[in-house]
Structures are given as C-alpha cells and as structure tokens.
Design a protein around this nucleic acid. Structure first.
Length: 430
RNA sequence: GCGGCCGUAGCCAAGUGGUUAAGGCAGAGGAUUGUGGCUCCUCUAUGCGCGGGUUCGAAUCCCGUCGGUCGCCCCA
C-alpha cells in the first residue's frame, strides 16, 4: 500500500526556478525605493500573542473571526501566525519605546497567514510588503506614503493600476455616517443580498462594497461617507488631495471605499487592477490614528499600506520573464590530476566576480562541452591530463569557437585580464 | 465555508472499459575513448493524485478523499 505523496500544505507553495527571479527583482526594487525614501526595514516575528491581533485588527473582522492560524504552544500560550503586518510593527515600536523618538518610517516584507480558500493571487501563506509611518498626522505623510507605493509599482512597470481614494473620517464621523446609512438602508432591507442583510446589523459599512447588483442599485442614492466628515477630517482629506495633485499623481475618489480592518481613520486607499480576475486589490492602506493607543501605546497617529506580493508576481509574469543571469565560464575536466586543477581554477575565476560552474561528471569532454553550450556559458575552460603538466589551459569562447591558452596560475589570478577577455569576446560578436 | 471545472513522467500531452499506457520537450548513455551547436540510436510511468468499490477486465464507470483552478465570501 502506498501512501499519499508528501506535498506542500494547501495554500502554500514553493517559489523557485524562473519565478524566484521575479521575487528577487521585486525585493530589490523595494529596498531601492523605500531606502531612497529613508524608510527603515523592520523584521518582526512571524507569530505573536493571539491577543495582539484580536485587539489590533478587531474581533468583528473576518480575519480575526475565521481566518487566523491560532495554536497553543507547550507553555499553554495562545499564539497566532500573523495575518497582517501592521499589528506586529506597532507592538514592536511600543515595546522599544520608539514612538517618543520622533517620526518613524518603517517598511517590512514577509510571510503572512490567513486560513482562506486558495485562489489566483490568494494563498494561505502569502507575502506582503508594507510601510508604516508613525508620529505625524500631517497630510503630507499620507501623500508621501501613497507616492512611494506608486513609485515602487512604476519601477516594476506594472500597467493599468488605479489609485482609489476615500476618507473614512474620524471615529465620531464614522458613527454618524453608519447611523445614517443604516437608517437609509433599513427600509430596503428585504431587497439587499443575504450577506448585506446580515451586515446591516453587524458591520453596515461593508455593505458599501457588495458586488450584488441589487444592493449596488440601492446604494446609488445612499448617503455618502465623505459628506459626513467633521471639519478636521474634511480639511485633512482636501490637503491629501492637493498633495497628490501637486505631485501629478492620478487618483479616483471612491466614496464607497471602506477597508476590511477596523482600525482605519481618515485616509483610506487601494491600488487596484483589472488584470487579476476576482482579486482587484494589489495593495491598500490608510491612516490609523488610534491603533497605537488601542494596543497600549501613547496616542500616536500613523499611516501605512500593504501590498500582496503574490499578486504583483502574477502581474509581472504577464509582462514576460526576466532573463536568467548568464553563465560566464563552464569548467570541464577529464583525467588524472585534473580534479584539483579544476577546483582551483573555478575558485580563482569566481574571485573575479565571474559566474562559474564546474562540471563534476565523469562524462567525455565532448559531453561536458555540450553541457557548457546548453547552459549558455560564454566560455569553457578545458582541463585535461596534458594541461596538468603543461600548465597552459585552453579557454574556448563558445560563440566564436576561438580557443586560447592561459597560463596557470598566473593567467587565472589576474582580474583585469579576465575583464579584458570578456570585453573582447563580446565585441567580436558585434 | 459554498458552487462549477480539472488531476496521465520534471514539463506539454494522446488515450473515455479489452493484449506490454502514444508522441513531443527536458534528462542520462552511446555513434564521436581530448573539444559544443546538426543528425541518428538506446534508456527514462509494473503505473494514470490517493483510498475503496463495480467488473472476467478500470487511466477510462461509481463513491470518498487530497490537491489544483475559476467564481462566491473576504481580502493584499
């Protein structure tokens, strides 16, 4: 009897081969662009006390109520694999007393976990890139944070993205709006889709982004959130928009945009695309001026966003694959005494910054050179028994077939010589 | 958690009840014992996601299960 083959857990996946290059490309751009904005990377633990997420994200949210990977460890503590990045970062800054040290600009990247049905661009273990800025309620920070997000996506050359913007106001504004919305919707309760009927009592704001056509029709004449903003939130919202305009950043106001997590205040935004099937959000974020005190820190305004990296990778894949890094030298060898020589040569060439692979098969030289060719190596170093005594090692340039002799070790220890050789070899092809 | 479709080698795939499961790509070996790209030959699934059932006989039909995919919910 054979057992089921071992495989990656549902909703998790291996990233390798050509795909890993997209991830590296993406991470490289993230470091570049966030570094240029002088954001500091932070790496927080992948699991935290369950309570952190319950308090931070909100008991009523889907994430907390049904999507968390929660377990009890051997010390009887309730722990949870982080379903998002913000709570852990906030915990960390409170714990290390960084919130009294002026404005803190952070970014993070890493695996998050949510127990959901896997779908295109949605995994149970997925990766987010995020930024969080603490200690300022200046609208310029909201703008900066969005600008950095767009800059990053532009650097990746991802097309067809829309920045959707709204303000969800301060908590009191939202309360007034919620009441008005419920009042408006209650007479239509029977005509709403079943999910929205439930939300009418539990979480009315979420009715706003229902996809149900009947519900959408009812919402068309519903009161709109931005009309309920208090003076402060109103002014903030206007300044955010002015800032975006000043930078020439296009955005679309979406008065129905509310976000899934309870902690957002004022600015809320999403970056969306039509190229991802059912998943339209590439990233989203906003301001959360009360989360820090919610989690026990001194009241500190904050704003941030997160992007789903799997989704970015899906979009990047549509643009084609990045070229594989080219192999410079393939070292083939055969016969007595060639093992040591090939080892030494490969190490010397690597030290010059060349990409080098050493063939360790017992195949004929012909086979080995064939492999050099298939791997796309620019050159091939051929080490046979004769070379062990002559110390004159053939280097064959595969594109031209030209072969030259290089003295060992002197010829292999000179980095400038190899730079020249590669320059010549490339120019001969032109 | 709910619904549709799907699951044959590393990849792409033919096969829809009947002898040893096509073919292509990739991989290994050889023709070519120290020199690549072309060509030719050989090899690479006692097994069709896994488990059970129906049948003289199952990749093929049935049930379950695991996984994938698309959509719903929700979200990044």
């Amino acid at each position: 009897m054979t057992s089921a083959p071992l495989q990656a857990i549902r909703g998790t996946r291996d990233i390798w081969g050509t795909e890993i290059r997209l991830w590296q490309y993406l991470e490289q751009h993230a470091r570049d662009i966030l570094g240029r904005a002088n954001y500091q990377e932070i790496r927080t633990p992948i699991f935290e006390a369950t309570e952190l997420f319950q308090r931070g994200i909100g008991e009523g949210t889907d994430i907390v109520s049904k999507e968390m990977y929660t377990f009890t460890d051997r010390g009887e503590r309730s722990l949870t694999l982080r379903p998002e990045g913000t709570a852990g970062v906030v915990r960390s800054l409170i714990e290390h007393k960084r919130l009294s040290q002026g404005v803190q600009r952070c970014w993070y990247q890493g695996a998050m976990f949510r127990y959901e049905r896997p779908q295109a661009g949605r995994q149970r273990q997925f990766h987010q890139l995020g930024v969080e800025v603490f200690g300022s309620d200046d609208p310029r920070i909201d703008v900066e944070v969005m600008a950095v997000a767009l800059e990053f996506l532009q650097a990746l050359e991802i097309p067809n993205l829309t920045l959707e913007l709204n303000s969800v106001g301060d908590p009191a504004d939202r309360q007034r709006y919620k009441a008005a919305l419920v009042e408006y919707l209650t007479p239509y309760a029977a005509d709403l889709d079943p999910d929205s009927q439930v939300r009418l009592t539990k979480n009315p704001l979420r009715i706003l982004d229902s996809k149900d056509p009947a519900t959408q029709a009812i919402l068309r004449t519903a009161p709109q959130l931005p009309q309920y903003l208090g003076k402060a939130a109103q002014q903030h919202f206007e300044q955010v928009q002015q800032g975006l305009q000043a930078l020439g950043l296009a955005y679309e106001l979406n008065p129905r945009l509310v976000r899934g997590l309870d902690y957002y205040t004022r600015t809320a935004f999403e970056i969306t695309t039509q190229d991802l099937g059912a998943q339209s959000a590439v990233g989203g974020g906003g301001r959360y001026d009360h989360l820090v005190e919610e989690l026990g820190g001194t009241a500190t305004p904050a704003v941030g966003w997160a992007m789903g990296l799997e989704r970015l990778v899906v979009l990047l894949q549509k643009q084609g694959e990045p070229p594989a890094p080219e192999l410079d030298i393939y070292i083939v060898s055969q016969g007595a005494g060639t093992a040591t020589l090939s080892l030494q040569i490969s190490q010397m060439l690597r030290a010059h910054g060349l990409r080098v692979e050493m063939d360790v098969s017992q195949s004929s030289l012909g086979k080995q050179i064939k492999r050099a060719d298939k791997l796309g190596s620019k050159a091939c170093v051929i080490v046979g028994e004769t070379e062990v005594t002559t110390r004159q090692i053939p280097v064959k340039w595969l594109a031209t077939g030209v072969q030259e002799l290089v003295a060992f070790p002197s010829g292999f220890s000179d980095p400038a010589l190899w730079r020249t050789k590669f320059r010549q070899a490339t120019s001969m092809l032109r």
